[in-house]
Amino acid sequence: MLVIALLVVGLVFFTGGGVGILRFPDFFTRLHPAGKLDTLGSLLMMLAVAIYNLEHFSWEALLTSLKIMLIVLFIFLSSPTATHSIVDAGIRAGMVPWRKETPEEKAE
């Protein structure tokens, strides 16, 4: 049950990521869902899998679960780095972050 719950929650986060990528106005904002929601989503789903894997406990299964958590660790290390590097690239490429039109601009 816990497994399914975790899976579903993870999927919800992933959905958020997917939809967010589509909905947000510019790429800086898109990175927020892409970078964060996906990371957490994968954490949750991996967790679910790891727990499921321990259902029939054995040393090998434990090791596998640990490996899965290792992946999660890796993702937590790499995902923000990757996100950061993309943002950095965007700034260097000269992209101006999207800003909401201020009321004054709207008036014009």
Partner: peptide, 13 residues
Amino acid sequence: ANSITLTPGTITV
């Protein structure tokens, strides 16, 4: 920096 990226609606530029 990485923690910032991971947490509340912020990304380290």
